[in-house]
Design a protein around this nucleic acid. Structure first.
Length: 219
DNA sequence: TACCAGGAGAAAA
DNA sequence: TTTTCTCATGGT
C-alpha cells in the first residue's frame, strides 16, 4: 500500500520536475532571511514580500538584532507592501526576540528537529506552515511543508483527503516519501510553482497546460 | 469590480 | 470544539 502510494507521489514529483526544472529554493540570501520571508509570506503574494524585503535591505535591518532596534511603527512601515503589516511587524519582533534569546542560527542549528519545531510553534505568529518553512529551508530538517497549493493540487489528484488536518497531511507526505530534506525542498518548491501558474481555486484546473499531471489520478 | 495570494490567532457560535 | 472574523497590500 505504502509502496504504491510512494510510486504515485514520486510520479507527481517527476512530472513537476520535468515540466519546471529545479527551483533552487528558498529565494533568500541567508537562513535568517528565509525566516523573515516565511513570516512575511503568510497569506500574501511573494512579489509583495519581495518589496518588503527590499525595504528592509535598503535600510540594513535584515538581522534579528537590527530588527529589534526599531520601533513598531518604523518596522511596520517597511513591511507595508507585504500586507497585514501591523500584524507581521509584531510577529517578526516576537520571533526575533526568541531567536536572539536562543543564541541565533548556530545555536538553533544544534537542536533536534521535533524540539525546534515545538519551540517555533510556541511563538505567537508562527503556525505549522511557517514553522515548517523555517525548519526545511533555513535549517534543512526533513519536514514537508503543507500549504494551500499542496492541499489543492493533491486533493484534485485524489491523493490527499480535503478534510485532513495539517499534521495528518504532513505525516502522510513524510511517511510516504521517507525523510529526505533535499527532496522535500524541491517538491514543495515545484508544488508552489505549479500552483501559481496552473492551479487556482476557481475554475478547477481549467486550462491547465500540465495535461499529464492534471489528468493523473490515483488508480 | 471581484478575486486571489506560499496563514495565524482571536472571537463567536 | 468548530466555525467565522480580522488583519491589508498589490496584481490580474
Amino acid at each position: 500500500m505504502q509502496k504504491r502510494e510512494r510510486q504515485r507521489f514520486n510520479r507527481v514529483f517527476e512530472l513537476l520536475l520535468a515540466s519546471y526544472g529545479p527551483q533552487h529554493w528558498w529565494p533568500a540570501e541567508t537562513p535568517f532571511e528565509v525566516m523573515v520571508g516565511a513570516i512575511l509570506t503568510q497569506n500574501t503574494n511573494w512579489s509583495n514580500v519581495e518589496r518588503a524585503l527590499e525595504n528592509l535591505g535598503a535600510v540594513s535591518i535584515l538581522e534579528a538584532e537590527q530588527i529589534l532596534e526599531h520601533e513598531h511603527e518604523v518596522l511596520a512601515g517597511h513591511l507595508r507592501p507585504s500586507g497585514y503589516f501591523n500584524v507581521k511587524a509584531r510577529r517578526l519582533t516576537e520571533f526575533c526576540e526568541w531567536y536572539v534569546e536562543q543564541g541565533g542560527f548556530e545555536a538553533l542549528a544544534q537542536w533536534p528537529t521535533l524540539e525546534l519545531r515545538d519551540a517555533l510553534l510556541g511563538i505567537k505568529g508562527i503556525g505549522p506552515e511557517t514553522a515548517d518553512d523555517i525548519l526545511l529551508y533555513a535549517f534543512e530538517h526533513p519536514v514537508f511543508v503543507i500549504d494551500a497549493y499542496t492541499r489543492r493540487i493533491f486533493a484534485r489528484l485524489g491523493l490527499l483527503p480535503e478534510e485532513w488536518s495539517y499534521e495528518q497531511a504532513r505525516a502522510h507526505f513524510e511517511e510516504t516519501l521517507g525523510p529526505d530534506a533535499a527532496l522535500y525542498n524541491e517538491y514543495h518548491a515545484l508544488i508552489v510553482r505549479h500552483g501559481k501558474e496552473h492551479c487556482r481555486p476557481k475554475p478547477r484546473c481549467a486550462g491547465c497546460s500540465l495535461k499529464r499531471l492534471c489528468r493523473y489520478r490515483a488508480s
